[in-house]
């Protein structure tokens, strides 16, 4: 949709140039990568756009002990990465159900973080996989955890003069598995509820570590810490989980909206928690 009050459009070639535009521009400026979320409505308050699609921030690279995903990497690029499919399955799964293919061709993972919509499918996997976000300013590179990055619905800590540069996710050793699940009204809808689960197992095939994050059921994505503790030592047995997953209700605080009532979100959060834990576990044991 046309942006009726937009006066300027910047599309720099380097990160430094981008940061200097951000610092010097005096009006309301917004960073876009794919722009798909931004252009879905007319943002009358925005006077300038800074398009970061030419900064070379679309990459998926192995580093020492972790993977680096550039913030302007599209979902299609993520889906084309074997590295992500093999090691960070929850991210791959979430990318495969974001909107539809023609959106995924241009929408980016960083964009989803920037928009900070509580239902953003790319977000829970970053919590579950212990990601670190790298923020660039003219003077420094800051590292923050997702837990500290998001501050509310459509809100994050990014200040003017800061660009989300990349996402770093540590590789796991041993046997591990992850999964992403989503409930929506149809195939292209935003999530009514979503969840990402990461588990590691020990030699006895018991869960030794777990990270679980739920989306669309609180002002930001939330970690289900009690549930994480409760699954440790189990083999994700269905009957046990049935009881254990009730713990998600302690951390979520869903609202009622046009997609769903709070009550429904409570009910299905448990269901997808169980489903995702079992799937992640099955992947960990190589099933």
């Amino acid at each position: 949709m046309k942006q009726s009050n937009l006066r300027e459009y910047f599309r720099p070639k380097t990160l430094d140039e981008a940061l200097s535009i951000l610092n010097s521009y005096e009006g309301e400026i917004k960073i876009i990568a794919g722009g798909t979320d931004m252009l879905a409505d007319d943002h009358k308050e925005i006077e300038a756009l800074l398009d970061i699609d030419q900064l070379g921030l679309n990459y998926i690279e192995k580093a020492d002990g972790y993977i680096r995903i550039g913030s302007a990497t599209t979902y299609t690029e993520i889906l084309n990465s074997d590295e992500i499919y093999e090691n960070f399955r929850a991210i791959w799964d979430s990318a495969s159900v974001v909107a539809d293919k023609s959106i995924r061709n241009i929408a980016t993972i960083g964009g989803n973080l920037g928009s900070a919509v509580p239902s953003g499918d790319a977000i829970p996997p970053l919590y579950a996989l212990d990601a670190t976000l790298v923020i660039k300013t003219t003077t420094e590179e800051k590292k923050v955890k997702p837990e500290d990055f998001f501050t509310g619905p459509r809100k994050n800590i990014l200040k003017k003069g800061e660009i989300l540069k990349e996402i770093q996710i540590p590789y796991s050793d041993g046997a591990f598995g992850s999964d992403f699940e989503k409930i929506a009204r149809n195939s292209v809808d935003l999530a009514t509820a979503n969840i990402a689960v990461f588990v590691k197992i020990d030699e006895d095939k018991k869960i030794s570590d777990a990270r679980i994050a739920l989306g669309a059921v609180a002002p930001t994505v939330v970690r289900a810490d009690k549930l994480e503790k409760a699954v440790i030592g189990t083999k994700a047995e269905e009957e046990k989980l049935e009881e254990i997953v009730k713990a998600v209700e302690d951390v979520i605080s869903p609202i009622s909206d046009v997609r769903s009532s709070a009550d429904y979100r409570y009910k299905v959060s448990r269901v997808i928690a169980k489903r995702a834990i079992m799937k992640a576990y099955d992947r960990a044991i190589g099933k």
Binding site: M1, Q3, Y9, R11, I32, G35, T36, L39, A40, L49, D51, D53, T76, K101, S102, I103, N105, I106
Partner: peptide, 17 residues
Amino acid sequence: MNGKAVKSCIIPALKAD
């Protein structure tokens, strides 16, 4: 656009430069 299907109503014209 550049070999990929995109929804042109949410692509800024200047991104197509």
